[in-house]
Design a protein around this nucleic acid. Structure first.
Lengths: 236, 236
DNA sequence: TTATGTGAAAGCGTTCACAGCC
DNA sequence: GGCTGTGAACGCTTTCACATAA
């Protein structure tokens, strides 16, 4: 069954898929959960549990068939479905997103670029012309996009979100530094580029603090959980 | 005490700070947890719990002093500390990050930009010239940066990470689509721009599936957890 | 014997609900 | 009376540990 897969797992599936693709290119035919997990940077139990949500695609005592698993994950990841995506705000970030090849390989198609700047309107990125912000609703309707990315300044974000929702968009990825209010039934995910850096800085500070303590009393610092290893994303 | 604040809380503090700054500008002197929480897009209990990690800075029956709370959060968020940050890979994403004002307001200073492209070397962003990748170690040492951002293609990321670590960097924010191996004591956080979009698409698919079911049997769809509301970030 | 698949335990983070203080 | 601060409950995620199957 493919019902109720946790968000955390959904987020990792594309990573597994990328590793599997690399393995397939190297001619590897079978892979164990341990090897796959290491390549993907996760615990092997986690990998097995993640895959178990999709079904039992491994062989006990052997491992997973690389090609078979690629197909299975691919189905879930949505190579099946091609999602048209609209990007609003074609500054540096919006341009980076429009150029981002990672979207394409996951089944996303950037079908619309919107910006209010006269210097940008009409310019093309990968053959797609930037539309005027005043035509936002028109672009949403003509492309049929239900997923949109907001990469505008914070001040503009709420107004654009309102217009997107009114035009039929039901999922928004928000890069603007503001909290968006949307009606029920619309999903918003917020990405804050500063946030991640901020968490790093916090740990960095704690590292240097405990190092300072360590100089005073060696044992105390090393005890009480050293736990400063390479960490992965929490995320959600 | 400021020991062991959860990552999730650390990630939200800057949001609170931004809201408080806006309130202060509007001349508001006191704010309740409910009002602040709403503006920040979180549950009021969550906000109170988050603030309780910093200390007891509110007044029961009254609320929080806007200015006082700004100072307290500001201390924790690191306006105290100015973090020099290095960005490697000045493509669209790297440029977007170099221009991102959100870093500055959180106490980060972009002190180095590095790229191998001859077309980019020497160009300036906000008065900071792009250095040659071959001088990476030199830049790390001269700037004293311990935090670096990797915004390069996936193939280059691991090699650059190795060089950064060897040069003394201990925290890396990785935008490249690859898992970085680093020694103990070095922290890596990975940001995958496709991942967030991917989670949105998964929910979008489930929305349309349950809508289809809804057309067949109205009650079944609405029962069993409608739970499609505006969601926030899971973080990690 | 080997490696998967999965209940059970542990760990985190969020939310509830109310005691405590102004 | 009102709002903060927080123990307890809840839910989601990760990890352990082992039964299960090749």
């Amino acid at each position: 069954m493919s019902a109720g897969i946790p968000d955390a797992t959904i987020a990792r599936l594309p990573v597994y898929l990328r590793v599997l693709n690399a393995l397939a290119e190297s001619g590897v035919e079978t892979v164990s959960s341990g090897a796959l997990a290491q390549a993907a940077g996760v615990n092997s139990a986690q990998l097995r549990k993640d895959l178990s949500y999709l079904g039992s695609y491994g062989t006990r005592g052997v491992g997973y068939g690389v090609d078979y698993l690629r197909v299975q994950i691919g189905r879930e990841v949505g190579s099946a479905h091609e999602w048209p995506v609209l990007i609003v705000g074609i500054g540096n970030l919006g341009t980076a997103l429009a150029n981002y090849s990672g979207f394409y390989s996951r089944g996303f198609r950037v079908v619309g670029l919107v910006d209010p700047s006269p210097q940008l309107i009409g310019r093309e990125i990968h053959g797609l012309a930037i539309s005027d912000l005043v035509d936002l609703e028109k672009v949403v309707r003509s492309t049929g996009a239900v997923i949109a990315v907001i990469a505008t300044p914070a001040e503009a974000a709420q107004g654009i979100a309102d217009r997107l929702v009114a035009a039929g968009v039901t999922s928004i990825l928000n890069f603007a530094a503001t909290v968006l209010g949307v009606p029920d039934g619309v999903t918003v995910r917020k990405v804050d580029l500063g946030q991640e850096l901020h968490i790093l800085a916090y740990h960095e500070q704690r590292k240097s603090e405990s190092a300072a303590v360590g100089r005073k009393s060696e044992s105390a610092a090393v005890a009480g959980k050293t736990e400063i290893r390479a960490s992965r994303k929490g995320k959600s």
